[in-house]
């Protein structure tokens, strides 16, 4: 192996929780020991990647507290270091990692999934959203057969826990209590005017959107929605979703 590649492999190992012995052997001992100098880089990597995770998962950080979050982040960074130089793209695996974290509340991974969806929505690439008037001009048969495609910024997060209520209660300046007994929530995440936003979906709306997202036609998705929620008033439900920037224009 050429020396530079070997040096970078050994350095990487020392930065990600492994031994610094191999790289220390190549570092100049000058006033400070090589291990002390390597530690400066290790601290930087740990602190800045921990901050990146705390930026993407602020509610998770608030729910578990700073010390717990820092320790979980540190273990996560060593196990699943970034594969992309775009920090906003770091943390896709953090919700699953939290599912195995000691003494973490059961709802934590799903709250993290909601925060990840919000992060993706905020940064997703720009695509024109479908305008309701584009559909109004179609004859009814064409509307039923229509296949709508969600925008890259659109996501649905379902949980057996009231994740939206938990997320809302933990926004800056809020300190509400949440009754976990209220049951699960399905949350729609989208981008509106540059902000990532979310709201709870009723059971019929959720089925409608999930069916559309899976590539089924509007007519088929609508029947599935009514089946899931027999009392659902379809036209306003569809109109409300179309008025939200969740579907792609193309």
């Amino acid at each position: 192996m050429p020396p530079l590649r070997e040096i970078q492999r050994d350095f990487s190992q020392a930065l990600l929780g492994g031994s610094d012995q191999a790289i220390a052997g190549r570092v100049l001992h000058d006033r400070l020991a090589p291990a002390q100098r390597i530690q400066i880089y290790r601290n930087h990597v740990r602190i800045t990647l921990g901050e990146a995770l705390a930026t993407t998962f602020p509610v998770v950080a608030r729910l578990v507290g700073g010390a717990y979050f820092a320790s979980a982040a540190r273990r996560f960074i060593e196990r699943e270091p970034p594969r992309s130089p775009v920090l906003a793209e770091y943390g896709a695996a953090f919700p699953d990692f939290l599912a195995g974290a000691p003494n973490a509340p059961a709802y934590l991974p799903d709250v993290a999934r909601l925060e990840w969806a919000l992060n993706l929505a905020y940064h997703a690439e720009d695509r024109p959203a479908l305008e309701p008037r584009q559909l109004a001009s179609l004859p009814p048969e064409a509307q039923a057969a229509l296949r709508l495609k969600p925008l890259p910024s659109t996501a649905i997060v379902s949980s057996a826990f009231p994740i939206l209520a938990i997320w809302q209660a933990n926004q800056p300046g809020r300190a509400d209590t949440v009754d976990l007994a209220q049951g699960g929530q399905t949350v729609l995440v989208w981008r509106e005017d540059g902000d990532a936003v979310c709201r709870a979906l009723g059971p019929g709306e959720a089925v409608l959107l999930q069916a559309l997202g899976a590539g089924r036609g509007l007519g088929e998705a609508a029947s599935a929605a009514v089946q899931a929620e027999p009392g659902l008033d379809l036209p306003p439900a569809i109109a409300a979703l179309l008025a939200t920037a969740v579907f792609s224009a193309s």
């Binding site: 990647l49 990146a52 970034p82 130089p85």
Partner: peptide, 16 residues
């Protein structure tokens, strides 16, 4: 450098 083994270290690391 900041990438080794496909891992991005989020630091500007030194070269010999």
């Amino acid at each position: 450098w900041s990438v080794a083994g496909g891992v991005y270290h989020n630091d500007l690391l030194p070269l010999p």
